[in-house]
Design a protein around this nucleic acid. Structure first.
Length: 550
DNA sequence: TAAATAGGACCGTTTATGGA
DNA sequence: TCCATAAACGGTCCTATTTA
């Protein structure tokens, strides 16, 4: 690869035009950096993968392994949907937790005999197992090599909630208590999540001691996969659940609220679904400087130890006494909970082929092989610096006034007429010349399309903030914000006042239902849901809109 | 020290594209 | 023609850095 880069550089150096040479050289450096970053990402992805494999192999009867992920928001769907039903839709949020535990001995013995006979019967299975044995030869050997696992998926669906660390803690608390109720022997848990802010934040990571006090289960470790590497069983289960819901809708049902979502998905095998609501009480804020650099966190009774990459180095210790945690976790209210606990699904494969059972096969294994091959050659190892693949963050560079003015002008043009494509603007910055023929921007002033997109996004937000009166509520979701961008100011003002009136009706109905509500809080929540559904029809909202037009 | 700014990651919808 | 997938876009949430 270095030879290729050198060859391209030699070709560029032969160019006579110095300005063109400089620009092409800058572009080459940019692309070389991107390629090296990609290689580093692939290596990190493959390395973090071992965290999961090793923890699953060490799993015992007292420990569970949790994958947690927010699924894509569910847009309410009716079986027969009128055109007007498309408006004022509010997405449902649902959180998926995939729990893996070691199967009890009686079940496992049955399964081992089944799986061994099955693997003998097919040659392809044998080759798969032997491959995975070869690949995992560097990993420590498991306590029992033919341990079967069982899994269950917990889904928590909300009509409305904030996707932040406090909500995640509430879900974990609720789910762990439920697990503890079913298996009092469970004492520990390992958690694996993606890099969403709600997981990879101080609140979630530092409140494990609070979680232990309230549930009795100690989180042993939390691991984060590299971006785009977390496509695990949660997404797969989410796809299965979506299929179930589509089938439910096709049987002439609606799926517009958390309770309907519960009914639609409850027939899925190995799934325990809860329709929930959350009362926000705790507003405590917690900070942990450098948290985004910690990808593997281990919790012991003495300290919290963090690593940037799985088991690279000794890790950085933090004493519990110097850590602040949330004092309490918001309680999750269940609107609808299944009466019976759903069954656990026994894996049909043992942990020798876990890689294919619990996660997508790692796409970069051939790449890993090449890395090792290159590493064995002396020429390559001398060129590789320590931590070459460690995650590095681009420093935040302040835009110059010249850059800001140029982008603001482009944005203004977009408001009045044609909208500019960030990529086109990025290209234009590179090639634009002044009246004297000299380039308008030097190569160190060039911007990427991501930077331009971010800047225009912030400009649009600032514009909306200026236009909307301070007392008005924040416009809901994309439909309102998109309209405000594209339509005239008058229209957006009308929209804001309409939203206000609808909110007023909803709050009034909620007040009425609260006064009528019976003592049980969960029933009260359900009543509010029903009132929202029945009392506020689209006709009410349309009448408000008509009144606004008059 | 608080506010503003820049960047990154994820999610959901829409649209384009390619294969069966 | 249908289906799966990827890209683009807008939105939310979070952290780190810079500036007033």
């Amino acid at each position: 690869m270095n030879e290729t880069f050198s060859a391209i550089e030699i070709c560029i150096n032969k160019i006579g035009d110095s300005a063109l040479r400089e620009r092409l050289s800058h572009r080459l450096q940019h692309h070389v950096r991107i390629i090296i970053e990609w290689k580093a990402h692939q290596l990190r992805l493959a390395h973090q993968y071992y965290a999961r494999t090793e923890l699953l192999q060490q799993l015992d009867e007292e420990t569970v392994f949790l994958y947690i992920d927010w699924a894509m928001k569910w847009l309410p769907v009716r079986y027969r949907e009128a055109q007007r039903d498309f408006f004022a839709k509010r997405d449902l949020l649902w959180h998926v937790s995939y729990v893996i535990r070691k199967a009890p001995i009686d079940q496992s013995s049955q399964l081992v005999s089944q799986s061994s006979s099955f693997s003998q019967s097919t040659t392809s299975q044998q080759s798969d197992v032997s491959k995975s044995e070869q690949l995992s030869s560097s990993s420590p050997s498991p306590p029992s090599s033919r341990t079967p696992y069982q899994h269950k998926t917990f889904v928590h669906v909300f009509d409305q909630c904030v996707q932040n660390g406090k909500t995640v803690l509430s879900i974990l608390r609720y789910m762990i208590l439920r697990l503890k109720e079913e298996f009092p022997g469970i004492k520990y848990a390992h958690i694996r999540a993606d890099n969403a802010g709600c997981y990879h934040g101080a609140e979630t990571l530092l409140s494990t001691s609070t979680l232990y006090k309230e549930t009795g289960i100690w989180i042993k470790s939390m691991d984060f996969c590299d971006p785009q590497g977390g496509k695990g069983p949660c997404d797969r289960m989410a796809a299965v659940i979506k299929c179930q819901i589509r089938s439910f809708i096709n049987q002439k049902n609606n799926c517009t609220t958390a309770v309907e979502f519960y009914k639609a998905a409850s027939s899925t095998k190995g799934l325990e679904i809860h329709a929930c609501a959350i009362d926000v009480q705790n507003v405590q804020k917690i900070e942990w400087p450098g948290v985004s650099n910690f990808h593997n966190i281990e919790y012991t009774s003495n300290e919290v130890r963090v690593w940037r990459s799985w088991k690279i180095g000794e890790g950085k210790p933090f004493k519990w006494s110097k850590i602040s945690a949330l004092k309490s976790i918001n309680v999750l209210n269940s609107i609808f909970t299944p009466n019976q606990k759903s069954l656990w699904i026994l894996e049909s494969k043992t942990n020798e082929s876990l890689e294919s059972v619990h996660d997508q096969p790692l796409p970069s294994l051939p790449f890993q092989f090449h890395v090792l091959k290159h590493a064995s050659q002396k020429t390559s190892t001398t060129q590789l610096k320590q931590q070459w693949a460690a995650l590095t963050k681009k420093p935040a560079i302040q835009f110059s006034d010249k850059q800001k003015k140029y982008l603001t002008d482009k944005s203004e043009q977009g408001v009045q007429g044609m909208k500019w494509d960030p990529q086109a603007v990025a290209l234009e910055i590179k090639v634009r010349s002044s009246s004297t023929g000299t380039p308008l921007f030097d190569h160190h002033e060039w911007l990427t399309d991501t930077q331009i997109k971010g800047f225009s996004g912030r400009l649009a937000a600032a514009r909306r903030k200026r236009q909307s009166p301070p007392s008005a509520t924040k416009p809901q979701r994309s439909s309102a914000s998109q309209l405000s961008q594209s339509d005239s100011d008058e229209e957006s003002e009308e929209l804001d006042t309409t939203v206000l009136d609808v909110d007023e009706i909803i709050s009034r109905v909620a007040d009425q239902s609260a006064s009528k509500a019976v003592l049980h809080p969960t029933t009260a929540s359900t009543n509010i849901q029903q009132h929202k559904k029945t009392d506020i029809s689209m006709d009410d909202i349309q009448s408000v809109v008509k009144r606004q037009h008059k």
